[in-house]
C-alpha cells in the first residue's frame, strides 16, 4: 500500500535520509524504530508531503503521493496522524479539535452530528463527555495525547501515522495508548505506521518492525523475528545497550 523507494532528504550538510526503501502492506501495522535524530519523523512527513524529499519515489496504492494540486486534498483525506505533542489547536475546544475535519471541507457534516461523532470518538479513547467542551490547555499530557488520537481516527482514515505515541506518558497511560492503537488498527482495518523508541510499544503495536539508522532501513522483519535477528544494530537498540555499533555520543 505504501512504498518508499530510494527516498533521500538532507537539511544543509545533515544527510538525514540516504536512500530509504520500505514497503508497508494494506492493513499492516509497521513500527519504525531508531535513535533520536535518525529521521523517523522526517520519513513520515515525506509521505504526507509536509517535507519534500530531495530524491526517491513515494507511492500510495501504486500512485505517486500527491504533494500539490487538485489531488492533494483527496490524498490527505485518506490519512490520520497523531503528532508527538498532540498538536491540538489551542483556540478550539476539544470536540472541535476532534471533529475538525467533519466541520469543514469534503467531509463536512451538520454541527450536531459532528459533535456527536467527536464525543463518541472521545469515549472510544477513554475520555468522558465533559472533556468535550474544555480547551486543550486545560488537559493533562496524557489526555491531550488521547484527544490527538481521537482526532486522528475521527474521519476513519485508511492510513494512520503515530509519531511517538507514548513519549512523555507514565507507564500505565502508555499501556492504555498502546492498547487503544492496537484495537483501533485491528477494528478499523487501517494501515498504520508508528515511530517510537519505546520497545514496550513496539511489542504491543507492531506487525512488522523496521530499523532506521544511518539514513537507511537497517533491518526490517516481522515482530516475532526482532528478538532473534543477528543484526548487531537492532540487538543493541532493542536491549538498550551503551556498547555496540551505534555510537552513544551523537
Amino acid at each position: 500500500m505504501i512504498e518508499l523507494q530510494g527516498v533521500r532528504k538532507s537539511f544543509g550538510k545533515n544527510h538525514v535520509l540516504q536512500g530509504v526503501d520500505l514497503s508497508v502492506a494494506r492493513g499492516q501495522s509497521m513500527v519504525i524504530i531508531g535513535g533520536s535524530g535518525t529521521g523517523k519523523s522526517v520519513l513520515l512527513k515525506c509521505v504526507l508531503g509536509l517535507v519534500t524529499p530531495d530524491a526517491g519515489t513515494i507511492l500510495v496504492d501504486g500512485q505517486p503521493a500527491a504533494t500539490k494540486g487538485a489531488g492533494r486534498e483527496p490524498f490527505l483525506d485518506r490519512f490520520g496522524m497523531l503528532f508527538q505533542g498532540g498538536a491540538l489547536f489551542d483556540s478550539l475546544p476539544v470536540w472541535q479539535n476532534v471533529a475538525f475535519r467533519l466541520l469543514r471541507g469534503a467531509k463536512k457534516r451538520p454541527k450536531d452530528e459532528a459533535r456527536a461523532i467527536a464525543i463518541e470518538k472521545l469515549r472510544r479513547v477513554g475520555l468522558k463527555e465533559q472533556v468535550a467542551d474544555l480547551f486543550p490547555a486545560e488537559l493533562s499530557g496524557g489526555m491531550q495525547k488521547r484527544v490527538g488520537l481521537a482526532r486522528a481516527i475521527a474521519a476513519e482514515p485508511e492510513i494512520i501515522f503515530f509519531d511517538e505515541p507514548t513519549t512523555g506518558l507514565d507507564p500505565i497511560m502508555a499501556g492504555v495508548i498502546n492498547e487503544l492503537i492496537r484495537e483501533i488498527v485491528t477494528e478499523m482495518g487501517a494501515t498504520a505506521m508508528t515511530i517510537t523508541h519505546d520497545m514496550t510499544s513496539v511489542r504491543a503495536i507492531a506487525d512488522r518492525v523496521a530499523m532506521l539508522h544511518g539514513g537507511v532501513i537497517r533491518w526490517t522483519g516481522p515482530i516475532a523475528e526482532m528478538d532473534t535477528t543477528p543484526d548487531p544494530y537492532v540487538d543493541q537498540f532493542i536491549h538498550g545497550r551503551a556498547e555496540g555499533p551505534i555510537e552513544s555520543v551523537r
Binding site: L50, L76, G80, F83, D90, G105
Partner: peptide, 17 residues
C-alpha cells in the same frame, strides 16, 4: 509561530486544510 513550532500547522495540513 507557536502553531508552527508545536506542529499545529502540520496538523492543519494533515487535516486537509
Amino acid at each position: 509561530g507557536t502553531m508552527k513550532v508545536t506542529e499545529q500547522i502540520d496538523a492543519l495540513v494533515t487535516l486537509s486544510t
